[in-house]
Design a protein around this nucleic acid. Structure first.
Length: 654
DNA sequence: CGATACTCGTCGT
DNA sequence: CGAGTATCG
C-alpha cells in the first residue's frame, strides 16, 4: 500500500509538463506500470498463455513517443523479491489466482464481460513477460536495466547519480526514496505532471518547510508503506504532525509510548529495517556494472540478507546477467532453461509470424505515413552523430550517490552526453548477434526502414551498423518544422494556447475537482478552450498536410485548414485502410497521437453541439469515445455492457 | 477533521 | 494499483 494519499496533497507543487520539454535528457521508466496497463488490453490471452504482443506494443508506443521527442528512455524492470515483501506478494498471487478462477467460471457461464474484468485482475507481469519486452528492447537498442530488487530503488539510484534526469512512474514510492525529479501520469500524448523534490518546501496543503529528506522518509514509513504497516489510527496527517513536532522517528515512537497508544515492541525494530531498506537497498550500477547500495552503508549495519535481501551477486556475471535480463532475477538461472521461458519462446515465434504477415502487406501511401517516414528520416539526417566515445567511468557516480559531488561543468556535459549518445553500456554486445532479425524489420517501419538506413549511410558513414541510429532521433521533427514554418510569429500566441492546452488537456485527476465544481458557463468556456487546444494539436500534427498543400495564410486560417484536412484524411483512413492503419500506427507514436487527438477533436464538436454535458469536462475524451462507439458499433454487439456509456449522476460536493 | 473500507477505472475495439 | 467516496471515530 503505497504512500496513500500523499500525491493529492502535493498537487500545489505538481507542475503540468509535456515530455517534449525534456528534450535531450534521459529518463528512467518504471516499466512495470506500462507493462501492466498494456497487458490489460490482452489480459485474457496472457492468462491463457495465448500468443499476443499487445502489451509489448503498448510499451513500445510509449518508448517511441519519448524518442520522437528527443528523450532517451531507460526502462527499469523489477527484479527479485525483498524478504519483507514476500508476504504481500503471496497475497497478491493468491488474489490473482482467485480472479483467474472466477474468470474461468464467468466465462463458462457465458458472462464474458465479467470474465474479462476478472482476467484483468488476474494478469501477472511475470519475468517472462519482461523478458519478451527485453528482447525487443535489445533489438531496438534501447537502454534497460533489471533491478536486483525493486525498480523504485533502482530508478532513484539512476536519478540521484545523474545517470538519468528524471523518472517516469505511477508510483509515489519514489518520493520517500528521495528521487529528485519524478514525472507522474504520463499519458499517451506525453502529457504528465512533474514533481520536484526541491519544491517540496513550498507545498501548500501540507507544509514541509524545514523538512529534510530523512524526515520525509520517516513520515512516509510512519504513515504506512510497503515494508511496514502503519500503527492503527496512523495516517499521513498524523505522521506529518508528529514528525514536524519531534523531527526524528525515535522521538516520535518514544512519545507515542509515553502518551497512550500501545506500540508493539517490535515496531521500532521493524521501523529501523524499513528505514534501512529504503536507504540502502541494493541497486545495479550500469557504469561499474556491479551491485551497490542506493546510499552507501556507512555504519556497520548487520545485514544478514534479513531485509535487504540475499546477496547472491558476488559473481560479477550474475549481477550483470540479471541486469541485462539474461538471468531470471528469482532463480538466477538463464531464462532459456526455465519452463516458462520456453513457452514464451514458442509464443514469441508464433507471434512473430503473425506480426510479420501483417507487415508484409503493402504500405499504404497516405499523408500520415509519408509524414512519419519523412519526419523521422529528416530527424535522423539532421542529427550529427558524434563518435560514440567510450564511457568514461564517471568518477563521481560510483562512490556515494547521495552526496552531490558532481562538478557542475562536468555534469552538464558528461552526464547528458553519456546518457543520450552512448548506447547503453549494458547490452551493446547483444546488438550484433541478435537471433531474431525479423524483429528488426518489424520494429522499423517495414518499407522505409531500409530507405532510412541508406540515407543514414549516405549522410553519416559511421553508421555502418544499426547500432546508433535509433538513438539519434534527437531533434523532434515537429519542433523543427514549426520553427521553420511559423517563424517568429506565433510564439506568444502559441505559448498562450499551450498554457490553456495544459489546463484542459491534462486530464489529471488533480484537476478534476476544479472542473467538477464548474458549471454551465464555465463548461462552455472550457469546450471553447478545448477547441483551441485541439486546433493547436491539429497544427502540430497536421504540419505535413500544410507542407504538402503549400497552404499559406494567417495562422488561424492554417489552423482551420489543417483541421479540415485532418478530418478528411482521417476519415478516409477509417474507411479504406481499416486494419492497416493499425500496423501503420503501431510503432508510430505520432500517428497514435494524431488519431487520438483527432477523435477528441471530432468528439468535442459533437459534444459541444449536442449540448449534452454528461459529466462535464471530467473525462471528455473517454466519455465521448464511449458514446460514439456505441453509436457506431451498435451492430457489433460484443461486450457492449462493458463499454456501454453510463452517464454519471451529477455529483454533489460535500 | 482524519482514518479506514470500499468501489471504480485502468486498455482498446 | 491509484483515486475517489462513504462511513465511522
Amino acid at each position: 500500500m503505497g504512500i496513500q494519499g500523499l500525491l493529492p496533497l502535493l498537487k500545489s507543487i505538481m507542475v503540468p509538463i509535456h515530455i517534449k520539454e525534456l528534450e535531450g535528457s534521459c529518463v528512467a521508466i518504471d516499466t512495470y506500470s506500462w507493462l501492466h496497463k498494456g497487458a490489460l488490453s490482452c489480459s485474457k490471452d496472457l492468462c491463457k498463455g495465448l500468443p499476443t504482443s499487445r502489451h509489448i506494443d503498448y510499451c513500445m508506443h510509449r518508448v517511441n513517443l519519448l524518442r520522437h521527442y528527443g528523450v532517451k528512455p531507460m526502462l527499469v524492470f523489477d527484479g527479485g523479491l525483498l524478504p519483507m515483501k514476500i508476504e504481500q506478494e503471496n497475497k497478491r498471487a493468491r488474489g490473482r489466482k482467485e480472479n483467474l478462477a472466477r474468470a474461468m467460471e464467468h466465462e463458462s457461464n457465458g458472462n464474458s464481460s465479467a470474465a474479462y474484468e476478472c482476467y484483468q485482475k488476474a494478469v501477472d507481469i511475470s519475468p517472462s513477460i519482461a523478458y519478451e519486452l527485453i528482447q525487443v528492447l535489445k533489438q531496438e537498442n534501447i537502454s534497460y536495466v533489471v533491478a536486483p530488487y525493486e525498480a523504485d530503488a533502482q530508478m532513484t539510484f539512476l536519478a540521484v547519480s545523474k545517470q538519468v534526469d528524471a523518472v517516469i512512474t505511477e508510483d509515489s514510492d519514489l518520493i520517500p526514496f528521495g528521487c529528485p525529479k519524478i514525472i507522474f501520469k504520463m499519458d499517451k500524448f506525453g502529457q504528465a505532471v512533474q514533481f520536484q523534490q526541491s519544491k517540496l518546501q513550498h507545498n501548500k496543503d501540507l507544509s514541509f518547510a524545514g523538512f529534510t529528506k530523512q524526515m520525509i522518509l520517516e513520515m512516509c514509513i510512519l504513515s504506512g508503506c510497503d515494508y511496514l504497516q502503519s500503527l492503527p489510527g496512523m495516517g499521513l496527517k498524523r505522521a506529518h504532525a508528529l514528525i514536524k513536532r519531534f523531527t526524528t522517528y525515535d522521538k516520535v515512537i518514544k512519545h507515542l509510548r509515553y502518551s497512550i497508544s500501545s506500540v508493539p515492541p517490535l515496531y521500532e525494530e521493524s521501523f529501523k529495517k524499513a528505514l534501512l531498506t529504503f536507504q540502502h537497498q541494493r541497486v545495479y550500477d550500469p557504469i561499474t556494472e556491479n551491485i551497490v547500495h542506493l546510499c552507501a552503508i556507512s555504519e556497520n549495519i548487520e545485514d544478514d540478507g534479513d531485509f535487504l535481501g540475499p546477496y547472491p551477486f558476488q559473481i560479477y556475471n550474475i549481477a550483470k546477467g540479471i541486469a541485462e535480463g539474461d538471468l531470471d532475477p528469482f532463480t538466477k538461472m538463464p531464462f532459456q532453461e526455465t519452463a516458462r521461458a520456453n513457452t514464451t519462446f514458442k509464443l514469441k515465434n508464433v507471434d512473430l509470424g503473425n506480426v510479420k504477415k501483417k507487415l508484409d502487406l503493402p504500405v499504404q501511401k497516405n499523408l500520415l505515413t509519408q509524414y512519419f517516414c519523412f519526419a523521422s528520416l529528416e530527424a535522423k539526417r539532421k542529427f550529427k552523430a558524434p563518435r560514440s566515445s567510450p564511457i568514461q567511468p564517471s568518477p563521481s557516480c560510483n562512490s556515494s550517490p547521495n552526496s552531490e559531488e558532481h562538478v557542475s561543468s562536468e555534469e552538464d556535459d558528461l552526464s547528458k552526453r553519456s546518457c543520450s549518445e552512448t548506447p547503453s553500456p549494458i547490452h551493446s554486445k547483444n546488438v550484433e548477434n541478435g537471433f531474431a532479425p525479423e524483429i528488426q524489420e518489424l520494429i522499423e517501419s517495414p518499407k522505409h526502414g531500409k530507405d532510412m538506413k541508406d540515407m543514414l549511410k549516405e549522410t553519416s558513414p559511421e553508421h555502418t551498423s544499426l547500432q546508433k541510429p535509433k538513438h539519434s532521433i534527437h531533434k523532434p521533427c515537429l519542433a523543427q518544422q514549426k520553427e521553420h514554418e511559423f517563424g517568429s510569429v506565433p510564439d506568444a500566441i502559441e505559448g498562450k494556447i499551450r498554457k490553456e492546452n495544459r489546463k484542459v488537456i491534462v486530464r489529471s485527476s488533480y484537476f478534476k475537482h476544479k472542473s467538477e465544481h464548474e458549471n454551465d458557463q464555465e463548461n462552455k468556456q472550457n469546450t471553447l478552450i478545448e477547441d483551441n487546444s485541439a486546433a493547436n494539436v491539429a497544427t502540430e500534427s497536421g504540419n505535413l498536410l500544410k507542407r504538402k498543400e503549400h497552404t499559406s495564410g494567417s495562422v488561424e486560417e492554417e489552423i482551420v485548414k489543417s483541421k479540415q484536412m485532418r478530418i478528411e484524411s482521417s476519415s478516409s483512413n477509417d474507411g479504406k485502410f481499416g486494419s492497416n492503419i493499425s500496423h501503420l500506427a503501431e510503432y508510430s507514436d505520432i500517428a497514435e497521437k494524431s488519431m487520438e487527438k483527432f477523435v477528441s477533436i471530432i468528439s468535442s464538436f459533437k459534444f459541444a453541439s449536442s449540448g449534452s454535458r454528461a459529466s462535464g469536462l471530467r473525462a471528455p475524451l473517454k466519455d465521448i469515445r464511449n458514446t460514439s462507439s456505441t453509436n457506431n458499433r451498435s451492430t457489433v454487439g460484443v461486450d457492449l455492457n462493458q463499454f456501454a456509456y453510463v452517464p454519471k449522476k451529477p455529483k454533489k460536493s460535500r
